[in-house]
């Protein structure tokens, strides 16, 4: 009898705790994804573009920087491409427009050139020959999109394809928070 009462009380406590957890947890409905890098200085990126131009992320402080990890054979990467083209077009019209870079993930220069000449997107494409940039950001699968603020801090990580208007909304939100 005593045991039965104790079991009932224990069950009630566990159920109450579960309800509290469900109410308090944020449910992860945001497009942003967790990363230990959020709020931290961005990892160093020193590489070249597929057009042989040097690139150093540390030298882009003062601009919002968007990095999109990409592979020309990845279906979600292809699917999100028109949204990225629209985003870059809108940003380049702003005086404080974000700089957009594709980080080539496990793909050849020629495949990237072919894809962009067929689908548009006149922005720099960064080489990541041995995957060092992907590892530094913890990118296992593409596409992934990261936003870095003008002070060089990582502010947002989006896993998977971005839909129309998502990047615009997220960047507007970040700019508003930045003041």
């Amino acid at each position: 009898m005593k045991f039965a009462r104790l079991s009932a009380v224990a069950t009630a406590v566990v159920l109450a705790a579960m309800i509290v957890v469900f109410i308090v947890s944020d449910g992860d409905t945001d497009v942003g994804t967790r990363s230990p890098l959020l709020g931290q200085p961005a990892p160093a990126i020193v590489t070249t573009t597929i057009d042989e131009q040097p690139f150093d992320l540390g030298r882009r402080k003062g601009s919002w920087v968007v990095l999109n990890f990409f592979n020309s054979t990845c279906v979600p990467c292809i699917a999100e491409h028109p949204s990225l083209v629209k985003f870059v077009s809108a940003e380049s019209a702003r005086p404080d427009g974000a700089e957009f870079y594709t980080v080539v993930n496990d793909d050849s220069d020629s495949a990237i050139r072919d894809f962009f000449s067929a689908n548009g997107g006149n922005w720099p494409k960064l080489r990541d020959a041995d995957g060092a940039i992907a590892v530094a950001f913890g990118v296992a699968k593409v596409p992934e999109t990261w936003i870095i603020d003008p002070n060089g801090f990582v502010r947002l990580r989006i896993l998977g394809a971005v839909a129309d208007g998502v990047l615009e909304a997220q960047l507007a939100d970040l700019r508003a928070r930045e003041g």
Binding site: N105, D130, G131, A132, A134, V135, A136, A140, K141
Partner: peptide, 22 residues
């Protein structure tokens, strides 16, 4: 990180190779 039950040591996946290089 992209395969089931394989270590970076044995995997040939791109992510595993990148981690091994790092």
């Amino acid at each position: 990180p992209t395969c089931d039950g394989e270590s970076v040591y044995v995997s040939r996946a791109a992510a595993a190779q990148a981690i091994r290089a790092e």
